[in-house]
């Protein structure tokens, strides 16, 4: 069953804020993890691991590089 995208964004925002301390107001669907949010690769892997746990989905390592923006991640998780 597909997850609600708003709920995914909310949950993912919580994970990103906990991990990085970024202001939640700065997190939006069009933001790039690397270019806008300055998230390094190990933090990205941490966020992915926590998201897998939270939403009970699997995000293959090969797919992580395709998750450029927060919206990409929300779409992947909601569609998984």
């Amino acid at each position: 069953m597909a997850l609600d995208k708003n709920e995914v964004l909310e949950g993912l925002t919580e994970i990103i804020v906990d991990e990085t301390g970024i202001d939640p107001a700065d997190i939006a669907l069009d933001r790039s993890f690397v270019d806008d949010l300055d998230i390094d690769s190990l933090s990205m892997m941490t966020i992915v691991t926590l998201a897998e746990d939270k939403f009970d989905v699997e995000i293959p390592d090969d797919s992580v590089k395709d998750l450029v923006t927060v919206g990409d991640a929300v779409d992947f998780i909601a569609g998984a």
Binding site: L42, T46, T49, E52, E58
Partner: peptide, 10 residues
């Protein structure tokens, strides 16, 4: 309990 996939990268 939950497998190596749940390990955190740090």
């Amino acid at each position: 309990d939950r497998g190596a996939r749940r390990l955190l990268p740090l």
